[in-house]
């Protein structure tokens, strides 16, 4: 199949960027979207042009590295799928495909279609963890977790941090990502001791990174490659409001060991 690609090219974070049109010829419908781009890049390289920069790593839909807004939809037209698992059979011969990077103030473009998603890392560093004292590993079943709760926590834990939720949100809000991280830990017994501080710190970090605010349109859950539900956003709102109301003042550490 032959396609016309309209691709966002941007030399670096300071460059204004522009759309450039390329022809993609003799593309197999069995190729993944990224393999199609590899073919286009081979062509560009053979002509001595700069190849299109895009992110990818595992190419099996589990790492969260690939991105791309394809015809205005993050990860393209297939639901519950990352770009690397999107195949060209979803398109028709002669289609024009617009390919853009995630666009958000909090995700500055590095080059072409690659963006800097370290804002997500900083949100996780703010509280998306469980502190564990060193020592012997505890017995796996010592802390009982009901099956339904474990399943729900796993649904949230599926988040691969790709940032599609931010890319698709009309307000570039990171609420689905943060909600998934907060919910995953808040549901489990191991997450309880740091539950209040976690949600307050992660939301504060999210706000300071310059993401927008959620307007409950649920575009995020529609494009999430892991189909994470927006019900986790309600759960985070609940956790946040409860933590704001109930949080005890921090005690100053005194004395020592």
């Amino acid at each position: 199949m032959n396609l016309k690609l309209v691709v966002w090219r941007q030399a670096g974070p300071q460059d204004k960027g522009r759309a450039v049109t390329y022809e993609a010829r003799d593309i197999s419908e069995h190729m993944s979207f990224l393999e199609m781009l590899d073919v286009v890049n081979e062509g560009l390289l053979s002509k001595g042009e700069e190849p299109i920069a895009f992110d990818s790593d595992c190419r099996e839909g589990i790492c969260g590295m690939c991105s791309l807004v394809i015809n205005g939809v993050a990860h393209g037209p297939e639901r519950g799928t990352a770009t690397c698992q999107l195949h060209m059979r979803k398109f028709k011969d002669g289609d024009t495909i617009t390919i853009e990077p995630w666009k958000a103030r909090a995700f500055p473009v590095v080059r072409d279609l690659t963006v800097d998603r370290s804002a997500f890392d900083r949100i996780v560093q703010a509280g998306g963890f469980v502190s564990v004292n060193t020592g012997n590993a505890p017995d796996a079943n010592a802390v009982p977790v009901p099956k339904t709760v474990a399943d729900l926590a796993m649904d949230a834990a599926q988040c691969i941090g790709c940032g599609a939720c931010v890319a698709q949100c009309k307000n570039a809000s990171a609420m689905l990502f943060v909600a998934a991280k907060v919910s995953h830990l808040a549901l489990l017994p191991q997450g309880q001791p740091e539950k209040q501080r976690r949600v307050l710190d992660m939301v504060a970090r999210m706000d300071s990174e310059g993401f927008g605010n959620c307007t409950n349109q649920y575009e995020c859950e529609a494009v999430c490659p892991k189909s994470i539900s927006s019900s986790f956003i309600a759960r985070m709102n609940r956790e946040y409001l409860a933590a704001s109301a109930a949080r005890q003042p921090e005690r100053r550490e005194e004395g020592g060991y």
Partner: peptide, 24 residues
Amino acid sequence: VENRLARPSPYLHQATVKATFASR
């Protein structure tokens, strides 16, 4: 205003997957 600032340059190709007309 914060929401507008959060995406300084809009997408060339804009598409909506499931947001309702009322919400937009």
